[in-house]
Structure formats: C-alpha cells, structure tokens
Write a protein that binds this DNA or RNA. Structure first.
Length: 409
RNA sequence: GUGAGUGUAGCUCAGCUGGUUAGAGCGCUGGACUGUGGCUCCAGUGGUCGCCGGUUCGAAUCCGGUCACUCACCCCA
C-alpha cells in the first residue's frame, strides 16, 4: 500500500528549492539592512495563544486551526501564523533588548486547498515591537517594497489604509452598522452584519459593492491622533518616493490589527490575491499579558510569491567522476574525489561499473557541468580527462595539477 | 464548510453509444556504437483503469458512495 502526502501539503525537491533558497537569501539581506535578526519559535503552541490574538470569531480560529489534545490533555495548535508566537516568545524571555525580528517557516490552516492556498504553507515576515512613530510604519512598508524590488518584481501594488485605534474601530463599526442596517445585502453579508461588519467592505458582490461605494469611510472617522499618525505615514512614504495606493475598503482578517494596514498585490498576475500583508497591532502585546507595547509587522506568502517569479536559477557547476576498469582504478578515482572534496569541489562518483557512454548519459541527466574520466590509459599515464559537457571539449590533465586546473574554470 | 470539473503506465494523455489480449508519446533498461552523453533506429520494462459497492451475460466505459487533485466561493499569505 502506497502512502501519499496529506491533503494540502506538498514536497519541495532540490530543483524547486533553487528558487526558494534564492528568495531566502535576498530576504535575509534586506532584513539585515534594516536591523532585523532571525527568531525561530515552535510550530506547536497552546491553542489559546491564537484564539486570544487572532480573534475568537475569525474564520482562522473558528474553523481553520489544527488543534488537538496531547497526551496530558493540553490543547495544542499548529501555528496558523507567526505574529502571536513571536510576541509570546518576546514576552516569555522578558529581558531582551532585541525588538526587530524576522522569521521563515511553515504555517498550518485547515483550508480547502486551491491556487495559492495550502494546508501547510510557508511565510516569511518581520515583527517590530515597541515603536509607535509613523516613521516606523513607513520603514516597514519601505522594507517590504525593497524586498520585492530586489526580487525583480516591478509591477507590485501596495494598498494602504488605517483602521484606527480600538476606540476608532469600535466607533466606526457602529457607524457602518447603522448605515448598512436597512440595506439588503448578499447572504454572506447579512451574516457579516452581526459578526464582522468591516468584512462587508471587501465583499465582491455587486449589490453590496454599490452600497459600500457610498458607505462612510474609516479614515473619515479616525480620532485626531490616529488621523495625524496616518497622514504622517503617508507624508513620509511620499517623501521617500514609495508608491502605494489608498484603499479605504482594506480590512484585515485578524482582529489584532490597529491603525496602519497594508497588502501587496501583483496586478499583472491575473489574480487578486494578496502576496503579502501586514499592519500595526498596538494592543496585541498587552492582550497577551505584556506591558502596553505598540508593534507592527508583515507576512509574505512564499508559495504565492515564488509562483510569480519566472527567473531561471541554475545549479552551481558540479563534477561527475567516471571511471573504467578494475579495482585499482576505482581506488585511484576514490583518492582523487576525496582530494577534490577537500578543496571544496563538489563531485560524485558512480560505482555501478557501467559503460562510459552510460556514465556520460547519467552525468548529463544529473546536470553535471563537467565529467572527469579515468580509464586504464590515464591510470598508467597518471592523468585524468576533464570533459566540458556543454561543448564536448576535453583535455588531459596531469594528476598533480587537477585541483589547480579545476579551480581555474 | 458550499459548488463545479477531473482521477487510465514514473510523466502527458488516447480509449467512439458497455463487448472479451488496455494503447501512444515521453521516460527508464539494453542494443546498433567492448573507452565518449544530447540526434536517429530497434527491442525490452512498466497498469489492482483512485478505492468500495451496485446495474449487467459482460464495466476503464453506466449509477451510487468514498478518497484525492484542480478551480471557484467563504476566508486568507
């Protein structure tokens, strides 16, 4: 009986990972330029961490979490996102001066799999704790923008909005509810009226949208502090030449967001799905038992990002050692590959004693750039043939010069 | 959680309205070419037709269920 991967998961093979590793390299270099350091937290957390942070009535917590009891009856969850974990770790450590964190890792949501959506998926992101200045919001958005530019993605769009502080949110919720109360909306939105009015703002239904167009906007109902914060963020973004567009209907699905929120789209990809998203969460640290600590961060969906990278990344040059003959020749081949490896030259050797043609065929399939050939003739003459697989040229090299000649390539 | 489409060889797929030995291309292995890959030709390898049940003399084909994949919705990175 064959065993297959579980629904909504997938395997990444070496050829797939070339792109992933490249993306990770660029992300890390940008993160470091902005003073961020890596943090790694457990994949497993107490279920309550997420119901308290993300919000008890969000879809993520209500129906998308992988939650189960362990042998002691503790309720554990495979993390659906990383922000809550980072905050938890930060608070648990207590005495750290470090406030800028970045992470990479798998997240889990019990969704129905489809394009750009998996049950185990990867995110990278940053969290910056303890800073309230609008310049910080600007910097985080700038960082995200620079990351995407360095990946060679030119046509991305960053949408921006402000939800205000918890008081603004509460006030605006009522205003929006009163405005929509008597309106006849789609089935989903009728449900949202009671549960989560804000979500009606990004409903795709045409009738709902026509009402939403006329609806009062959040940014017209921000308190003076939140309004000036938002205006300053925009001022700095304009000043630094970071392009963005305002989307008064942008709301985030997680309850902890306050003030600045943003999402990144690739309009030319033909999908209206966010590749990255983030925002402020000024109350979360306190809600998780810490002191009042404003904070901001974002997360990037790596599958969604990588699906839109059409760059070709080639493997590093590698060597294949082909030998022909008896044990003494094999021993010489083993000796030489050991020497090459000591000099950091990646090489594999085939032990199957097949024909030279067969070995070249294999080397070709493995994508080896060069083949080293050792037969009885070379053995006697103390040489090795170096064959360039690309143009079929080859030359005889003295054994003692082998490492030196290869390093010249 | 809701809806639609698809499951046949390692991969991409054909198989007409049910008819008896289930096919092709690619791949893989070997040979033509005892030490030189990519091209060509030849041969070989490879399938519980996703799984379970039903209808039928007979099911890859029709029906039901189930699982998986793809896509859309809800929601989200």
């Amino acid at each position: 009986m064959k065993i297959n991967r579980v629904r909504g998961t997938y395997d990444l093979f070496p050829e797939d990972l070339i792109k992933w590793q490249w993306v990770e390299k660029i992300a890390k270099s940008v993160y470091q330029e902005y003073g961020f350091s890596e943090i790694r937290t457990p994949i497993l957390e107490p279920a309550e961490l997420f119901s308290r942070s993300i919000g008890k009535w969000t879809d993520i917590v209500e129906k998308q979490m992988y939650t189960f009891e362990d042998k002691k009856g503790r309720l554990l969850t495979l993390r659906p996102e990383a922000t809550a974990s980072v905050v938890r770790a930060y608070l648990e450590k207590g005495n750290t001066s470090e406030t800028r964190f970045y992470y990479f890792g798998p997240m889990f949501r019990y969704d129905r799999p489809q394009r750009g959506r998996f049950r185990q998926f990867y995110q990278t992101g940053v969290e910056l704790l303890g800073a309230v200045h609008p310049g910080i919001d600007t910097e985080i958005i700038l960082l995200l923008s620079e990351f995407f530019q360095k990946l060679g993605l030119k046509d991305f769009e960053i949408q921006l909005n402000s939800l205000g502080c918890s008081l603004c949110k509460e006030k605006y919720n009522k205003i929006l509810f009163n405005y929509l109360k008597e309106k006849c909306l789609c089935k989903d939105c009728e449900r949202r009226k009671e549960k989560n009015v804000l979500r009606i703002l990004d409903c795709k239904n045409k009738i709902c949208q026509s009402y939403v167009q006329e609806a009062p906007k959040i940014i017209d109902h921000l308190c003076p502090n939140c309004l000036s914060h938002f205006e300053e963020v925009r001022e700095y973004l304009d000043f630094l030449g970071v392009s963005y567009s305002l989307n008064p209907h942008l709301v985030r699905g997680l309850d902890y967001y306050t003030r600045t929120v943003f999402e990144l789209f690739l309009p030319n990809s033909g999908e209206d799905i966010a590749i990255a998203a983030g925002g402020r969460y000024d109350n979360l640290v306190e809600e998780l038992g810490g002191r009042k600590t404003p904070a901001i961060g974002f997360a990037v969906g790596l599958e969604r990002l990588i699906a839109n990278l059409d760059i070709l990344k080639e493997k590093e040059p590698s060597f294949y050692f082909a030998y022909l003959g008896e044990k003494e020749i094999l021993k010489r081949a083993m000796e030489l590959t050991a020497e090459l490896r000591k000099n950091k030259i990646p090489v594999i050797i085939n032990y199957e004693r097949k024909s030279l043609g067969n070995q070249l065929h294999q080397a070709d399939r493995l994508g080896s750039k060069f083949v080293l050939i050792l037969g009885s003739r070379e053995f006697k003459e103390n040489t090795v043939i170096l064959r360039d697989m690309k143009n079929s040229s080859q030359r005889v090299i003295k054994r003692e010069n082998l490492v030196e000649k290869i390093k010249e390539i």
